[in-house]
C-alpha cells in the first residue's frame, strides 16, 4: 500500500531550489576563478564570474538565513536534531545497505516517515553541511567580499590567505557533498522518486 507523506512544504522547496541554483552558480564560477589562465581561458570569463559569484553568494547568504529561521519557526527543524543517537551503529547499518543491501534488494533500514525524513547518513551529512559547512563558507566568503574586515595577519600568516584557504576548502567539501547528495537522491524506490518528491512535496512510501 502506498502512503503519501507531505515532507517538503512550499517554503522548504523554494529554499532548496534557490539554494541549488545559487550553489551551482557558485561552484561553476568559483572553479572558473580559481583555475583561470593568464589568457583568460576558463569555463566563464573572469569579470563575469566575479559578478555572478558575488550575486549568487548574496542570494545564498540570505537564503541560508531564511532556512535557519524557517527551521526554528516550523517543525522542519526536528529533522536536524538527535543526529547523535546511536550514531555509529546507525551509520554502519545505513552504510552496509548502500554497500551491500541495496544490491540484494533489501528494504531500506530506516524507512522514511513523517518524523524521520532523513536516514542517519543523510541526517549527519545535512547537519554538518548546513550548520557547519555553510556558515564557514558564508563567513569566509563575506570576508573575501569585504577584505578590509579581515585581520591583516594571524600568527604571522596573512589573514586573507587563511580566509581564502578556508573558503576554497569549504567550497570543495560542499561541492563534493553536492555530488554525493545528487547520487544518493537516485537511491529511492526508483531513480527519480526522490527528485519528484522534492518538486511535488510528497514522498511516496510503500508499506
Amino acid at each position: 500500500m502506498t502512503k503519501r507523506l507531505y515532507l517538503y512544504p512550499v517554503w522548504v522547496r523554494l529554499w532548496h531550489l534557490l539554494n541549488a541554483v545559487s550553489f551551482l552558480l557558485l561552484v561553476l564560477t568559483g572553479i572558473s576563478l580559481h583555475f583561470i589562465t593568464s589568457e583568460g581561458n576558463s569555463l566563464i570569463r573572469f569579470d563575469i564570474s566575479v559578478v555572478i559569484h558575488n550575486v549568487a553568494a548574496i542570494i545564498l547568504t540570505f537564503n541560508y538565513g531564511y532556512f535557519v529561521i524557517g527551521n526554528i519557526v516550523s517543525n522542519n527543524g526536528k529533522h536536524y536534531k538527535n543526529w547523535r543517537k546511536n550514531l555509529a551503529a546507525n551509520l554502519w547499518k545505513q552504510g552496509m545497505y548502500y554497500a551491500v543491501g541495496i544490491f540484494k534488494k533489501e528494504s531500506h533500514p530506516f524507512p522514511v516517515t513523517e518524523d524521520n525524513k532523513f536516514n542517519p547518513l543523510q541526517k549527519i551529512s545535512y547537519v554538518l553541511a548546513m550548520y557547519l559547512g555553510m556558515p564557514l563558507l558564508i563567513i569566509s566568503g563575506l570576508g573575501l567580499l569585504f577584505p578590509e574586515t579581515i585581520a591583516y595577519t594571524v600568527f604571522n600568516v596573512s589573514g586573507l590567505v587563511l580566509t581564502a584557504m578556508l573558503h576554497i576548502t569549504m567550497g570543495f567539501i560542499l561541492s563534493l557533498f553536492l555530488l554525493i547528495h545528487l547520487y544518493t537522491c537516485t537511491l529511492g524506490e526508483k531513480p527519480l522518486t526522490l527528485f519528484k518528491g522534492m518538486i511535488k512535496g510528497y514522498h511516496d512510501s510503500h508499506d
Binding site: L33, S158, I168
Partner: peptide, 20 residues
Amino acid sequence: TYVIGANQNIFLNRLSIAIF
C-alpha cells in the same frame, strides 16, 4: 596577500581533483 587565480596550491589542486 592572496590573489584569486594566481595563488593556486598545486598539491591541493591535485588532491581535490583526485578526491572528486
